[in-house]
Computed example of a mutant assay.
Amino acid sequence: MPQVIADISVSLDGFVAGPDDSSDRHALGIGGERLHQWLFELDTWRARAGREGGDRGVGADIMGEYFTRTGAAVIGRRMFDHGEKAWGDEPPFRVTVFVVTHRPLPPRPMSGGTHFEFVTGGVAEAVGRAVAAAGAQGKNVAVMGGGQVIAAALAAGVLDELRLHVVPVLLGGGRPLFAEPMDPAIALETTRVELSSGVTHVFHRVLK
């Protein structure tokens, strides 16, 4: 059975994007790019972009395995809208990506193996379709964000693991990981903590 794994970078003050995030001004919010610099410097990430070199530490191992084991992904429409221009014709996913949206679009095949499918039935439906797609390959599902989609997946009981990459920056505002109060009955267990190149990787298993 595929594991459904949420994975996101977060600032020390709890934000996954900086202030004033918009697709036409600051896609990651003001200062939000600092949350992802550690990822862009990994050799496993650079290799996906056809570039050489990069950090080969534990973070590269974590994300390299994550990429290899991912057979389908789930993202929100905001993340799609913000990233569409930057990703270009060959997005970095290389799997089918189910986009949770109220504004459907036709399926969109891209170069490099990425295929966007737009799902209007909510996060649980999107995750269910992703599980079917990933399961056919014997792989996992990656719920990549933004924070609203991850929170909704956690609240819906469809997550198996929550991985936070905690970056030691303070954004002072923006989009929090959990914008709305979560059910205190949801229980998680920290299973792994790793420090690499200025980011702390914290793995949490969702207890069901």
Rank of each mutant, 00 (worst) to 15 (best):
L39A: 10
F98G: 01
H82T: 03
P106V: 11
G121T: 08
S23P: 14
H26W: 00
T96H: 12
T70G: 02
Q137H: 09
G128C: 02
M110H: 04
E65F: 04
M110N: 02
R103Q: 12
A126C: 05
V58M: 05
E117S: 15
V193E: 03
T114I: 00
A126R: 02
A27H: 00
P184W: 02
D183M: 12
G138E: 07
V206T: 14
V10L: 14
R56E: 10
H82L: 07
A126E: 04
V74F: 04
L159T: 10
D89Q: 08
H26D: 05
V141M: 11
A136V: 09
G59P: 09
E194S: 14
R103G: 03
I30E: 14
R192V: 05
I150T: 07
R48E: 04
T200P: 00
R34M: 14
K139R: 15
R77S: 13
A132L: 08
R78Y: 01
F80V: 02
V127L: 10
R103W: 05
R108K: 14
R205K: 15
V95F: 00
V97F: 02
R69Y: 01
Y66C: 03
F80I: 00
P168N: 12
A126P: 02
V141C: 08
V10W: 03
G88E: 09
W45T: 12
V97K: 03
G59V: 11
G29W: 02
L162F: 08
W87I: 01
R129W: 03
I62Y: 06
R34I: 07
D61H: 05
A126M: 09
Q148F: 05
S11P: 08
R108D: 11
W38T: 04
V10P: 04
A151T: 11
Q137N: 06
G50W: 13
A130P: 01
P181N: 12
E52T: 15
D43P: 03
L39V: 15
A136T: 10
L188S: 01
E41K: 13
V123R: 06
V166R: 13
T200M: 15
G32D: 00
E189W: 00
G32M: 11
H82R: 12
G18A: 05
E33G: 15
H26P: 00
H36E: 11
D7A: 09
A142I: 04
V141I: 13
R192Q: 13
K139F: 09
E52D: 15
V10S: 05
L28V: 03
D183G: 13
I75H: 05
E180Q: 15
F93L: 04
G173F: 12
V99L: 07
L188K: 02
D43G: 15
E84H: 11
H82F: 10
A156Q: 11
T200S: 14
D89P: 07
S9I: 00
V123I: 14
G32E: 09
